[in-house]
Structure formats: C-alpha cells, structure tokens
Amino acid sequence: MDAILLQILNGLDKGSAYALIALGLTLIFGTLGVVNFAHGALFMIGAFCAVTLSKFLTLSFETVDPTKTDFLGQPLKVKTPYVEAWFGPDFGGALIDWAVPLSILFAIPVMITVGFVMERGLIKHFYKRPHADQILVTFGLAIVLQEIIKQVYGANPIPTPAPDAFRGSFDFGVLLGFDPSVIIYPYWRLVYFLFAAVIIGAVFAFLQFTTFGMVVRAGMADRETVGLLGINIDRRFTIMFGIAAAVAGLAGVMYTPINSPNYHMGMDFLVLSFVVVVVGGMGSLPGAVAAGFLLGILESFASMNEIKSLIPGIDQIIIYLVAIVILLTRPRGLMGRKGVMED
C-alpha cells in the first residue's frame, strides 16, 4: 500500500508537467487547429526565464576585504550581489533565494509576448495549409529556438535551486498514519503539483465562468458561426495562444529545481506531450490533463524494481506502449470528440 502511494506521488510531478504542456497544446489545437511542434520550446523558454532572472539577481560586484586573506595570502575578494547592496543583505538575500518563484511574475509577460509574436508572425499564415506543413514549420521553429538558447546559455544544464524553505523532503507517510520514513517526498515536488493544479483550475475556470471563455468555447465548437455573429474570434484565439504559451512557460519555470534546464529539454518533453495529447484525445482539455497525470503515474509505476524484474525495459517504453494500445482500440483517445482531425 505504501509502495503504491509512493509511486503515485512520484508520478505526480512528471505528470503535472505533462498535463500542463498537453493542456497548452490542446488549447492551441482546439482553438486554432494548429499542430504546434514548437510547444516544447515554449516550455524550455519558460525554464530559461527562471535561469535569466536568477542570473540577473546574482549579478555582483567585487570588493577587496583587506582584513581577510585567501589561501594564497592575497587580500580576499568578496562578491556582493547588487541587490544585496541596494536592499540590504536580508531582503536582497531573500530575493535571490526566491528567484524561481519570482520568475513567474517575469515569465508571464515574456511568454504571452512570445506567444503573440509567434501566432501573429508565423502561425497565422499556416491556418489554410495542410497539417503536415504546420508540423514542419513549427518543427523548424523549435530547432531555431533551441539553437538560440544553446548559443546564449551554452549546452550544459544550469542548476537553478528552489528556495531554501522548500529544499528538503518531508515525511509524507506520517501524515497518513504510516510508519515514519516510508514515504519521503521532496517539498518542491509537492509545490509543483499544487502549482499545476492551480494553473489547470484557473484555465478551466477562465474558460467556464467568464464571457471571454464562453466565446472561446463557442469558437472551438463552431468557429464560422461565432464569426458570423459579429465576434472577432481571431483576436480571441490569438489571446488564447498567448495563454497557452504562458501555461507552458510557467510549467517550465517551476520545473527548473526538479531538473536543471538545458537546451534540449523542450524536445524531450515535446515528444512525450504529443503522446499525452493523442492518448487524451485530440482537442479535449480534460482528456489532456487526465492523460498527463495517468501517464506520469504509469511511468513511475513501471520504474519500480518489482515490475522491472518482471518485464525488463518496461519503464522505457510504457508511455509509447500505452499510446499505441489506446490509438488502436480507442482511435479518438480517452476523451476525444468526434470530427476532430478526421479529415
């Protein structure tokens, strides 16, 4: 029982990342009808927003401290970040410590802008072209974005730690009445899961309870009719693209303490996220979220030693295997709607 619970918890953080990326992919697909292969790159750009902000906050100047010497006998050079000098060591230190969560504020405008520019500048011209062309051009864009990031930040992963307060793990099992230290769970993963839940909830609430969301949902169902009613649906869909980009970017920002960001993290997640979208059902938002968590948890179960000894290698292929089985038995995915991508 405790082992099962532990695997479910382990699967949650990866599942949250899948769910967030797949949610954005589905939003773009459902509104604009575009298959966006550059969505993984948006996730990566989000992660590098966090890297940028934490680098920016730790920009420092050097002073020579004559009272101390280093091991060579030279006067010690002390690096002081500008923020600590300006706001005092307490507040400045806290700012640096909390760089990753703070990056959320920084990433939202950046990602929305990136999304707008991408949609207006490139994807707009591909609505009428075949899906293969959309895949190809966004695939090209993903390569370009990833190479730019590689040029700027280098090819190595950049560690970006979580705030001190969340750095350890806590004994989750005790809360539920298990023996101590059976279920140990890092704080940040819990934060990531809660964050993902909030974002997903916010997106659904936005679509469900606001007038804007209602129009968007109507447009997803029948774009032409909504247009005929005199509503500028294109503008709203552009905004949805920006929101989808922001969702992917935020998923990336918060993921940085779990996995140090590198330039190909987007591509790694993209392939899996597409599988998630297809399993969930193309164009179905709840399907994407459910499939994201489902596959994340399945992956973590498959990497248990007991299961690996039973079927060797299953942890490597479980997601693809599930995708193949689902596509062949339920061609529309778990919750796919009729008439989507069936031309």
Binding site: M282, G313, L321, M341
Partner: peptide
C-alpha cells in the same frame, strides 16, 4: 499497425514506435 490511422496520428504512432525501439536498444536489448 501505424497505417490504421492517418494524419498527425500516423506521425505520432511512427514516432512512438521509433522512440520505443531507440529506448529498447539502449536498455534491454
């Protein structure tokens, strides 16, 4: 197996099979 579906589904299926072979070649095989 893959040709039972078309369009993007076909692309994803072939991608899934290829990644599966790649992962297996790295680990169990």
């Amino acid at each position: 197996v893959s040709l039972r579906r078309s369009g993007i589904y076909f692309s994803i299926l072939t991608l899934a099979f290829a990644q599966m072979s790649f992962n297996l070649a790295y680990s169990v095989l």
